[in-house]
Amino acid sequence: MSHIDLQPGFDFQQAGRDVLQIERAGLAHLDQYINQDFAQACEKMFYCAGKVVVMGMGKSGHIGRKMAATFASTGTPAFFVHPAEAAHGDLGMVSAQDIVIAISNSGESNEILALIPVLKRLKVFLICMTGRPESSMGRAADIHLCVKVPQEACPLGLAPTSSTTAALVMGDALAVALLKARGFTAEDFALSHPGGALGRKLLLRVNDIMHTGDEIPHVSKEATLRDALLEITRKNLGLTVICDDLLKIEGIFTDGDLRRVFDTGIDVRNVGIAEVMTPGGIRVRPGTLAVEALNLMQSRHITAVLVADGDQLLGVVHMHDLLRAGVV
């Protein structure tokens, strides 16, 4: 393409707004196609004993990949198969228990049309998503989902723009409708996203990250304040637990408590820890979600909580542990 000069006064912002207006109109037009065919497609996918296999060529393939990913992450087992690769062996991934969703705006994708006779022979249920119900794919489908739009946002009417947006939104509508029908929860979502921030917040529990054993700062009730301060310094968690030999909790002493002790004028060199500790201490159970421990710390303006079963000390969780785990 040869270089051309920018037209004087060309308005990029208006060009962008024109695209948004055209695509909004296309989506408004799509509303009429959330109909009985849509409901039947959802019902077939809801009761599918296999997987949802999404196919599409070119830009429709890109939409299909995203659609399959959305299905899979929201409770509908799904994967994408490239139609050209399917014709050379990958069709073996598809079984009679599966449902195929084939996407093509024209409904005349040669690569998909070549697969339809085999899919019919395998008795695979076929949902076609096109902009032309009268197309070859539209006629061959067991259910046709129309995604016709009044016009493409491309001024040449060539680059798929409004049509791919419509297909993407129709895919989202299917996925979310199925999600709601299944009663899919945030925790279900987290199970398929364990590496993400949401997964960590919904799955990580305090016993996964708490300090245990020798890492727990603790002293006996007979210890001096000086002993307690040395333990706080050694373990570097900003506190020490006061407990017996069996780790039964008596109380807690923190950096904040030390500042308050200084304000009272107590002789810190001679006082016993039992005289200045806070009885009990704020604690959570080991199965508590890490995000719940975070909320507790924030609401109580503290930086650590004890992990305990009743009065039995099991561990300590510090705000820094939550930061490292990506919960904050």
Score class of each variant (00 low, 15 high):
A153L: 08
G171Q: 07
H144E: 12
I143Y: 08
E152R: 01
V169A: 15
S136R: 06
A141T: 04
P160K: 00
C154S: 07
P194G: 06
S162F: 11
D172S: 08
M170G: 01
V147W: 00
C146N: 15
D188T: 13
L158P: 03
A153Y: 09
P150H: 14
A159N: 04
D188I: 10
P133G: 00
Q151G: 04
A141F: 07
L202F: 06
F184D: 00
I143E: 09
L198Q: 02
E187C: 02
G138A: 06
E134N: 14
F184S: 00
A141W: 09
L178N: 10
A186R: 14
A167Y: 09
M137D: 04
T161R: 11
L174V: 14
G138C: 08
A181T: 13
G195M: 09
A181W: 08
R139W: 04
L158T: 11
F189S: 00
L158W: 10
V149I: 14
A159S: 14
G195S: 11
D188P: 00
E152F: 03
D142N: 15
P160R: 03
A140L: 13
L202E: 12
E187H: 11
K148D: 09
Q151V: 14
C154P: 04
S135K: 08
K148C: 10
T164V: 12
L202Y: 08
L158N: 03
G199F: 08
M170N: 01
V176N: 02
P155E: 08
S136H: 02
G195F: 07
A173W: 10
C154V: 12
M137T: 07
A173F: 10
L168I: 05
L198E: 03
R132K: 14
H193I: 08
V147P: 00
S135P: 10
V149Y: 03
R200T: 01
V169P: 07
P150C: 10
G199Y: 06
I143H: 07
G196C: 03
V149Q: 04
L145R: 04
E152W: 01
P133S: 13
H193W: 06
D142S: 13
D142P: 06
M137C: 01
A153Q: 03
S135R: 06
G171M: 10
V176R: 01
L145T: 07
G183Q: 11
L156W: 07
A141C: 04
V169C: 15
L145D: 04
L156K: 02
G199E: 07
L145G: 01
V176Y: 12
H193A: 08
A186K: 14
K180F: 14
S192V: 14
G199N: 09
P160W: 09
G157S: 10
A167F: 09
I143C: 03
S135I: 05
Q151R: 15
A181N: 02
P133Y: 05
V169R: 08
A140I: 01
D172V: 13
G183K: 03
R182L: 12
G199R: 01
R200S: 00
S163I: 12
A167V: 09
F189D: 00
S135Y: 10
D188Q: 10
T161P: 00
L174S: 02
R182M: 11
A186S: 15
P133T: 07
A173P: 08
C154D: 14
V176L: 15
M170F: 13
F189K: 00
K180R: 15
